[in-house]
């Protein structure tokens, strides 16, 4: 009887379950090729088993070590700047009283979030061009030499971090703005009667009130320390900056799909997935424990 009543519900989840099974869980079975010397014409069943060889290769191959370092550096600065900039911007926006001004600013700064890295990559390669691109014209006008934003490794990292902030900072302020509206106005009124100015109110009321949210966002973001932004790098990099700009995901793509080194790339991808999952679980539990955060 009970089964008959819940049967339609099972039927309703079934399509999604099948999709996830085919496109998420079956590939997980394919992970075994990380422990093989997989040859497409032999298939999983007939390819030779090599144990941990592919993983050992990750740590002996100089390119892959460099790629891990690049990933960590780029992701780290993105996470740190990605916390500080939106937080500060939300505080500044909060001081604006004129609603139409505030709305206009929001409309403009949220926009880049919705444009893909393909579009933004095309725009950035144009305006950052070493041959008198718009930005370099400005740099010349200031009296400096033109900057190789996308041709020099160190500048490339800087460009990647800055352009990521440029794309996402606006959208990331939403969560802080939501937190700011939740602050009890009577706190400000009390501070006002005590003679605290706007600056003191910000230091003693506003910032402490949204700091927990900032800590939470930062904690959850740390789970992304191995995601340095595949789409972005793919649309900005070139062989000149592989040394400092190549990250795990772009490396796996080039070795695996373009170079057909299926087993090595799968092993590298698995290495990344396992660490990422561990970090996400750990940081989620921390957020759950200290901030009572939950997804559901």
């Amino acid at each position: 009887m009970k089964w008959r009543r819940s049967f339609p519900l099972h039927l309703l989840v079934l399509p999604s379950v099948l999709f996830v099974l085919i496109f998420q869980y079956i590939p997980m079975g394919g992970i075994v090729i990380a422990f093989q010397d997989y040859k497409p014409w032999l298939g999983i069943r007939h390819s030779a088993w090599v144990g941990w060889e592919n993983f050992e290769y990750i740590f002996t191959y100089p390119d892959s070590k460099q790629v891990i370092v690049n990933t960590l550096i780029i992701a780290f600065f993105k996470i740190v700047a990605g916390m500080i900039v939106p937080f500060t911007f939300a505080l500044l926006l909060n001081e604006i009283r004129l609603v139409i001004f505030k709305r206009s600013v929001q409309t403009l700064v949220y926009l880049p979030h919705f444009l893909s890295w393909v579009i933004l990559g095309g725009i950035l390669t144009d305006i950052l061009s070493i041959n008198n691109g718009l930005v370099n014209q400005f740099v010349s006008w200031l009296g400096f030499e033109q900057i190789p934003f996308l041709q020099d490794g160190s500048w490339f990292r800087f460009t990647v971090i800055l352009s990521d902030i440029w794309k996402e900072f606006g959208f990331s302020t939403i969560i802080y703005l939501a937190a700011l509206t939740a602050i009890n106005p009577s706190l400000y009124e009390a501070a006002e009667t005590d003679g605290a100015g706007r600056w003191k109110q910000t230091i003693h009321i506003t910032i402490p009130s949204i700091l927990p949210i900032a800590a939470l966002v930062g904690t959850l973001a740390l789970g992304n320390i191995l995601n340095a932004g595949f789409d972005q790098i793919m649309n900005l990099y070139n062989p000149l900056v592989y040394n400092k700009g190549d990250i795990i995901d772009t490396f796996v793509y080039r070795q695996g799909i373009l170079g057909s080194q299926f087993s090595f790339s799968t092993a590298f991808g698995l290495f990344k997935s396992v660490i990422s999952m561990t970090l996400i679980v750990v940081f989620y539990r921390l957020a759950y424990k200290y901030a009572n955060y939950r997804l559901f």
Partner: peptide, 17 residues
């Protein structure tokens, strides 16, 4: 469903499927 948010097989196995 949630497990797939935490762990993914990665590019190559998905590509092969």
């Amino acid at each position: 469903f949630i497990f797939t948010m935490l762990f993914s097989a990665g590019l190559i196995p998905s590509y092969l499927v």
